[in-house]
Amino acid sequence: MSAPVIRASSLAQHFGARMIFQDVSFVVNAREIFAILGGSGCGKSTLMKQLIGLLPPSAGRIEILGQDLARARQAVRRSIGVMFQSGALFGSMSLLENVMLPLEVFTTLPPEGREAVARVKLGLVGLADAASLMPGEISGGMVRRAGIARALALDPPLLFLDEPSAGLDPITSAGIDRLILDLRADLGTTVVLVTHELASILAIADRCIMLDRAAQGMIAEGDPRHLRETSAEPTVRAFFRREAA
């Protein structure tokens, strides 16, 4: 079996005296779709920031693709793609230019090569015809898709998605789910997502962890379908029941 793509060991985060979580450990395997779940304020986004190298953990160690994130932050960043909840597209650039930006910085592709690659990425997320549009001209679902296309620009083996379906209608949300499954199938991408959408979690996630604010840490890990059926942990049961209702 190949080495895990992510190995998180005893992670903790506190801001001053305020503890967000502690002793969070998990692994994410290659080609896995891994979800980070939990209620508001439990530290999901904080954990995601730690994993993408934006926030050094107060304690613990993160290895990504076999490299210690604390020591090789820049090298690791070249191997990951991140889609932020808002899409974080640059408003002054067209979708095509947004996707071309990382290619311009990190490759020696000539302009026509960058454009061809960027068009393939936009095609992968179903935005081939929207390449020349500006972020302000497209819908929320398209912004998320364009954000994913930009995150994929350098074909990273590991993709982080922050709330990819939040605030979208069920049809668009299902489209994003399908896209994530396609990316795994076509490109072999490992995907880590933070989400509240129960339908998405059950449809696409292979495994998940759940954080809890009261416990200040991780309260469950495993296959979400299995957790839904068998977990005796009250918060886990309430999460799945409440979301399902």
Partner: peptide
Amino acid sequence: DTAGAALLLS
């Protein structure tokens, strides 16, 4: 990867 595929198809 997709950049290589884009090269070949271009």
